[in-house]
Nucleic acid binder design. Structure first.
Lengths: 199, 199
DNA sequence: TGAAATTCGTTGTTTAAGCAACACAGGAGG
DNA sequence: CCTCCTGTGTTGCTTAAACAACGAATTTCA
């Protein structure tokens, strides 16, 4: 549990927990479309007005929940912004993305796939944030922002693609993406030997 | 769910539900004695002051929970005060008492058997209330209160004894107690035939 | 289409839960 | 003996959730 969650008023934690739980149960049963705010608050036994004190609408709840799932996956693989840009961390980050995409592809109601693009933006942003923080700790990196964008999208895209079919192994995905990043970075880095050694 | 519970503020229902749940979990783990109010509220993630807004102490929570179990058993067997004094209802009442006692004897931490007497008073009172209401609908009953006390204690006692050992079947217990009630009532009833026929 | 019913998003007020602090009662151990 | 420590009930104040009500937007379906 993150620090911010821990410091929250217990009533707030309870309310959000119940709303998320109710949302997940109803997602399984009815899917996202055929689902009203009233349904969620009835199921959670929370007043409808209270819902709006926490979320603007059901879309926001949906997005927050999926972002939370992703962050949980990151924690499972010990992926943190404070870590360093090395092959092992990159690998774990890729695994987390893969696991997350697998859950999305399977656990969701078929009719709701149309909402995946909305959340993808958030997830890619999260990946970018991590990669960029990793890169900032390196010396001799040119155009760190743009490079981080490119790397984060490549990781996100690879995970997304893998989640759909899961034809090959996660390990192969990670190997390939890491190799590509290593080669791709050669043009951006001034002190090549030490960076490449870490990948 | 009873009418009174239904009408309660959802926050109250939530709080009590969480406290009861935490209490049950800690009962399994530590037993009643080695268990503080602080423990319960920590486990339930409820403020300690809020505990005292609902229960005087852990004893009251304990009693209410056990009474609730018994009432659930009564509902399972469709035993209600509004029903009539007949053999079938008596039988179900006896079954409910037996099931309840069995749960008490088994599900409880060994060190806590000392607290059983406290709750027994409540349970017997509950049985009395039902039996007395049943009897009030009958005509020609003398000394209904005293008779109801005797009957309720006999049912309670038989169930208590059975719960400890469970040597014979619930059916046998019910047959025996009902037969005893039928014979015992002969001295209290003016219109014997119709009453005995219902037993 | 048009009327009825839902759902939405918001508001003001009431009520319950959180929280910190208090005095007090036992128990353990120096 | 006294002190430290933990658990107990209780209090005043703050904050979040319940609730009823509203106009507006949507959906339903006759």
């Amino acid at each position: 549990m993150s620090k911010s969650e821990q410091a929250l008023d217990p009533r707030v934690r309870r309310t959000r927990k119940l709303l998320k739980q109710a949302f997940m149960e109803l997602m399984q049963k009815k899917g996202f479309n055929a689902l009203t705010v009233q349904d969620i608050t009835d199921q959670a036994e929370i007043n409808r007005a209270t819902f709006y004190a926490h979320y603007a609408d059901k879309f926001e709840l949906h997005d927050q929940l999926l972002l939370e799932w992703f962050r949980e996956k990151l924690n499972e693989y010990d992926v943190h912004q404070e870590s360093s840009f090395c092959g092992n961390n990159l690998r774990n980050l890729i695994y987390a993305v893969c696991d997350y995409q697998a859950r999305l592809s399977h656990g969701c109601h078929p009719a709701d796939l149309q909402y995946k693009p909305a959340i993808e933006e958030l997830i890619q942003g999260e990946i970018y944030s991590i990669v960029y923080q990793w890169m900032r700790q390196l010396e001799g990196i040119q155009q760190a922002e743009i490079t981080a964008v490119a790397i984060s999208w490549s990781i996100f895209g690879a995970g997304l693609q893998w989640g759909k079919t899961q034809t090959h192994s996660k390990e192969l995905v990670a190997d390939t993406v890491i190799a590509m990043i290593r080669d791709g970075l050669k043009s951006q880095v001034t002190r090549l030997p030490e960076l490449v050694g870490s990948l």
